[in-house]
Design a binder for these strands. Structure first.
Lengths: 118, 118
DNA sequence: CGCCGATTTGGCAATATAACCATAGGGAGA
DNA sequence: TCTCCCTATGGTTATATTGCCAAATCGGCG
């Protein structure tokens, strides 16, 4: 990553923010195997319909999904397959982080145990 | 990306949330060329010192930076170089999104112009 | 021991966000 | 046209977050 100017940082932050909610990630997850309409997504996620609609609007604004009206339905789809590659990478990062945190927690526990024994 | 369970989604969302603020991205940006203490980061970012400290605490909690106390100073560093690779990829995604949005805005403008002329 | 610089923490006001409810809009078909 | 189904929007409440200020904490040093 080269040094980023303020505009780029703002765009970057907006993109990350769109991905920063479990509900939205769950919605994106339901779109992995192709486009779906709002009703389907609502059912698959178990969230309220209005809620799903709002999250979809947000994802659309962020450019993460595309929308296409077909009759009375609106179908949403992943705009860019790179989104999932991204999640792959982040999953790797998260795994490393959790591992590190677990390791340091273990070390701390051991030290505390030592103190207790001294 | 394989289908993710709820726990993974939560971790993923937390990671993205940590990256979803321009101020935090700016802080991470200052750490690209090596570790720095809070005072240095405060000066480089131009934010309030307490504010920087809180953001650093959040980044540390999220596992994105490491901290090491040296005397009265606390030095922070990027925990994982993959963080920057991630930003690279996202920058690519964002660039495509902005491009698409610009293109559709242009198309819309042209259509509106056509309507105006008809 | 007490001071001093560096960092963290707590309190506060303003803003943003998520989920829920009810309701409005919009196209399809009778 | 009227109705039905799907989707979007407005309103509300509860919660989270940001940035700033002041104060507390922590380590080192005279």
């Amino acid at each position: 990553m080269q040094a980023l100017d303020d505009s780029a940082l703002t765009h970057l932050a907006a993109y990350f923010r769109a991905l920063s909610e479990p509900t939205r990630l769950r919605i994106l997850n339901t779109l992995r195997d192709g486009e779906k309409n709002v009703g389907q997504i609502t059912e698959l996620t178990g969230c309220g319909q209005a809620n799903v609609s709002k999250h979809l609007a947000l994802l659309f604004e962020a450019g993460l999904v595309t929308r296409s009206a077909q009759g009375t339905s609106v179908f949403y789809a992943i705009a860019d397959e790179a989104t999932f590659e991204l999640c792959d990478i982040v999953c790797g990062n998260v795994a490393r982080i959790v591992e590190r945190q677990f390791a340091s927690a273990t070390a701390l526990k051991r030290q505390l145990g030592t103190i207790g024994r001294s």
